[in-house]
Design a protein around this nucleic acid. Structure first.
Lengths: 143, 143
DNA sequence: CCAATCCTACTACATTTGTAGGTATTGCGT
DNA sequence: ACGCAATACCTACAAATGTAGTAGGATTGG
């Protein structure tokens, strides 16, 4: 339930979301300041993107501090990432293998990574998706 | 040498390229017919995209058959894929691990895949990039 | 309480992307 | 040689995206 439509985000929107996910919540000003030095558009530009994200249901207003609106993500990073991955995977014929091979070739994967991954997969097989353990919030950062 | 500028392709352009890479060479008609049943726009639409791809240097005219132009890719699938992967990776903080974890969670990776990958990486470490063995074309499909 | 400041809401506009129509050409079959 | 059918080529336009300015309301330090 509470299933949100799978919004499709543009490059720049994704960039903003990346920052917002990292900060957990932020004002437009904070978002702008946290963009990478390269490609940091005007304040109002960021504002516009945030508005569009709001329209798309990707973020929502949490509250006001002073006269500034504080936004927080309305969609999970994981969900969006999943979408992106799926899309990329399609370019590779739907299978993860060629993608992995590519990563290896690019030197983005070493044996240690793979070993770790192996452990992860094994664990997952033992702990199916909705095992009672992982129910509910899993972390909460003070901020 | 012969280094082509890393063109950036849109969704639809990528879709066309995907087909073209698969077919190795094709006319606009063939490209259109080989798009997935969903999302198959008008002939002239495909033509427009092909023209833009040509302008971007992503494809070029190979020859004419009848009065139809035959196109072929002018950029390697691998190069484009690499770009896409790098981009996606940035969303994940530049490291491949979270991506892998995600794939595992999505059930897109099983132990067999990982084992295979392990082998691959090991081989790559033994056979550095420009070892004389791998020089030149590595496969050639009869067609 | 008042002005300097900060923020929002609205509007605008250029560029890119998706989509396609109309017209000029070109080969081919007869 | 001619006309038909398929194709190329040019043009157009709507929607999405990136980018930003302006007007006016809210906040707050003094």
């Amino acid at each position: 339930m509470t299933k949100q439509k799978s919004v499709s985000l543009t490059r720049f929107e994704l960039e903003i979301m990346r920052v917002l996910w990292d900060l957990e919540r932020a004002s437009v000003r904070e978002l702008q300041e946290n963009l990478s030095e390269k490609r940091r558009p005007a304040y109002t530009t960021v504002q516009t993107i945030v508005r569009r994200l709001e329209e798309k249901g990707a973020v929502h207003r949490l509250r006001k501090i002073g006269n500034a609106l504080i936004f927080e993500p309305a969609i999970a990073r994981k969900a969006v990432h999943g979408r992106l991955i799926t899309e990329l995977l399609q370019m590779f014929g739907g299978s993860a293998r060629p993608l992995m091979a590519h990563l290896a070739e690019m030197g983005k994967l070493n044996l240690e990574d793979v070993r770790e991954l192996e452990t992860l997969i094994t664990e997952q097989q033992e702990n199916p998706p909705d095992s009672p353990v992982a129910k509910g919030k899993r972390e909460r950062k003070a901020r």
